[in-house]
Design a protein around this nucleic acid. Structure first.
Lengths: 249, 249
DNA sequence: TCAGATATTTTTGTATACAAAAAACGCCGT
DNA sequence: ACGGCGTTTTTTGTATACAAAAATATCTGA
């Protein structure tokens, strides 16, 4: 392992360990592999910048490059990987602007959904959400960071699903995935996305069908997450080496 | 042309006429073809249910099936075409629920964007929007329905772009494309999506930076469009023939 | 020893070949 | 004449082969 120009590593063994053994009937199998890869990205096992070579993936998953490319293209449309022509695929590194856009979008959509969710939520849903929130808290306290990240995203996604609007739920799903990438690039280690008990509090508002309060809470919640990030554009193309090394003085 | 089980025709000659002649360098070319097909769908030249056979597309566009499949998969992820395993691609026929979800999403996002658009809009933008609105009105009065549909969608998309949020703009773009499909299925002929001068009025609110008014207007505007549709589920799988033909009485 | 040029290897892009499923067609017995 | 059954044709799914580009390694002459 000689190249490490940025911080993008090659495919780590972690992914390989999940190798699937000849199961699934094609389409089903591709779906599974897609989820394995996208989970690995969301859980920060594959960090932004990591290259995804087609041959490596064919080896790991035992499918032909045709299938690999199909999956990579899907991931690219969801902005989880970036396809650079003639140069292959890599886990996308969101720009500062993209990061701001994603959080603005979440602010608009997730908050906008809260009243409807509060109206439609059932006792079962509440139970499920509470369990998810507690699972997340536990994962966090035990130090299973990657699991906590995934669970946190899952919580927000489930919430959106409860609105009953499939289209918006799918959109929120995408936004949460991208948020995980943003966290990987602009997040401060130690301080994970969501405050540990925020989600529990939110569920309580919903349980009491206080849509307006839930909305306000979500607003604050997302604002806090965004505020905890250091969203500053790192000059990619021409880092100012003079300033960095202070030779010019 | 013997089969017409629903209302899905085969590829009409219209599309073929746009044949591209050996231009573009691969990726660029695929992009062009993608736009040709998606435009044809949005403009109702390809109506919901129309089958898109891979061989036919390879012939029309002179690319291999590999390229065709890539494009079809992209269209499928944007919900413009439906890929049925082992049965090929067809222009998607949105369900009633999907239709409602799409309009609810537009209600939330497009309206939510208006204040920001009102804040950021420039004199140039206003000019451009007014020209688009007038083009649309003209196309409508001359009877160029398909052009009017496309222009109407373009107006809404441009509006979203002016918010400066790329992510939300892309989402609105998708929603508008899907709305065109919804119009094709649930729209009443003669009554096109948007009222002819609504868009002009909206631009005026924005020009005066009256974000709140613009938002309210957009809200009404979208509500009117949705109300003009006949969104009722046509039982696809098991149409109740007894009731239809009244034999059982 | 090292910059620049050239050769080799790796990696992606595209077309095509082959297998399997679905659809269309024709056949035949009743 | 018609419905059920088997065959042919069409159409999709997947792997693979080949070409072109990029990355890497090697060589050469100061």
């Amino acid at each position: 392992m000689k190249k490490s120009h940025d911080q993008g590593e090659e495919l780590p063994g972690l992914v390989r360990s999940k190798r699937v053994g000849k199961n699934g009937d094609g389409a089903e199998r591709h779906e599974v592999i897609y989820h394995i890869i996208s989970d690995a990205i969301i859980e920060h096992q594959l960090r932004p910048g990591a290259r995804l070579r087609e041959d490596a993936l064919t080896e790991v998953f035992n499918i032909s490059r045709t299938g690999v490319r199909k999956i990579l293209q899907r991931l690219a449309l969801e902005q989880l990987v970036t396809l650079t022509p003639r140069r292959g695929a890599s886990v996308t590194r969101p720009t500062a602007n993209e990061a701001r856009d994603v959080f603005a979008a979440r602010q608009l959509v997730e908050c906008g959904l809260m009243p409807e969710v509060a109206r439609r939520i059932t006792a079962d849903d509440v139970r499920e959400l509470k369990r998810m929130a507690s699972d997340e808290r536990e994962a966090l306290s035990v130090g299973e960071q990657s699991r906590a990240i995934k669970l946190s995203a899952a919580f927000h996604e489930r919430l959106a699903e409860l609105s009953g609007n499939t289209t918006l739920a799918a959109f929120v799903r995408q936004l949460c995935s991208r948020s995980s990438l943003i966290l990987a690039v602009y997040g401060n280690i130690g301080h994970l996305g969501c405050e540990s008990h925020d989600h529990d509090d939110l569920v309580e508002y919903l349980e009491r069908r206080e849509g307006t309060n839930a909305k306000a809470f979500m607003q604050r919640h997302l604002k806090e997450i965004e505020a905890s990030l250091s969203i500053v554009e790192e000059e990619a193309s021409a880092p100012d080496l003079h300033q960095i090394f202070g030779l010019g003085t």
